[in-house]
């Protein structure tokens, strides 16, 4: 079975159709593999080559990757949930019941979205602390750290705006408690509070506002900043690896105990 499957796969990948879609074509050479990255609109933001050391699990714990992974899960489940959701009172709550009792696997979909959202907040925080403790924020990566802080705030806002959408007691009072804090801002506090909720208390207007923020504005902002984040990883010299760590599998790499801030690796 195995060789035959491989042969079929090989024939498929050699076909004209395949080539018309994947420009890199078939092949295991460095060139082909570089082209697989460079010729794809989704992957070309990544460098074609990376240092072997940064693939070690210990280097990053893959926290950034995992945060992106939860974001992707949230986008997919979120779009599916949008098919069933009306941002109006009290239909929003009825939709939760429908998701739970009528929609096929609707309960699972909502569960996955909710738990992934919590996981994303948790992972974003973990990512931040991990980056800090490894010193990866140091120049030349300082701006990317700032982008990361912005992404953390967007993540929190995404989670917070999504919290209201089920329109249950939990949602209503969590948002009420949270939004009341904004009234404490001197002078313009009340204005901010009103602007945020579209009224003086959490109501149908607030639900609509939070819905638009949650489903359109904040995800777009997140995608934008994620793109910048990834682009800057590449432009700032790839994922940061402490010089003090031995390069496993890279036998001849020498070790410098000097300050790594001055390290500069030119990339294509």
């Amino acid at each position: 079975m195995q060789p035959r499957t491989e042969a079929t796969l090989g024939r498929l990948m050699a076909s004209r159709l395949w080539k018309s879609i994947f420009r890199s074509g078939r092949g295991t050479s460095t060139l082909h593999r570089s082209m697989a990255i460079q010729q794809s609109v989704f992957l070309h933001i990544l460098p074609a080559k990376v240092r072997r050391r940064m693939l070690n699990f210990d280097a990053t714990w893959y926290l950034g990757t995992l945060t992106l992974g939860t974001f992707l899960v949230l986008v997919i489940t979120g779009i599916l949930l949008m098919f069933y959701y009306h941002p109006s009172v009290p239909q929003a709550y009825a939709d939760m019941k429908d998701l739970r009792y009528v929609v096929s696997s609707g309960l699972f979909l909502r569960n996955l979205h909710r738990w992934s959202a919590h996981a994303m907040v948790l992972l974003a925080f973990a990512h931040m602390f991990r980056v800090f403790y490894r010193g990866a924020y140091r120049p030349p990566r300082e701006f990317n750290w700032v982008v990361g802080v912005i992404l953390l705030l967007i993540t929190l806002l995404l989670s917070y705006t999504g919290y209201l959408l089920p329109w249950d007691q939990l949602a209503f009072w969590a948002i009420t408690v949270g939004s009341n804090i904004s009234s404490a801002v001197p002078i313009v506090g009340q204005k901010i509070h009103f602007l945020m909720l579209g009224g003086n208390q959490v109501n149908a207007n607030a639900l609509l506002r939070f819905y638009v923020l949650h489903c359109v504005i904040l995800p777009l902002a997140a995608v934008l900043f994620i793109a910048v984040h990834f682009w800057r990883i590449r432009k700032d010299g790839g994922l940061y690896v402490q010089q003090s760590e031995p390069a496993k599998g890279a036998g001849e790499a020498r070790v410098s105990t000097e300050d790594s801030a001055q390290e500069a690796v030119a990339k294509p």
Binding site: A94, K97, D98, R100, Y101, V102, Q169
Partner: peptide, 17 residues
Amino acid sequence: GQGAATTVAAAHDSTLS
């Protein structure tokens, strides 16, 4: 009872307003 529910427990015993 909870008309929207399609499970026995939720349809008959739910006390969530």
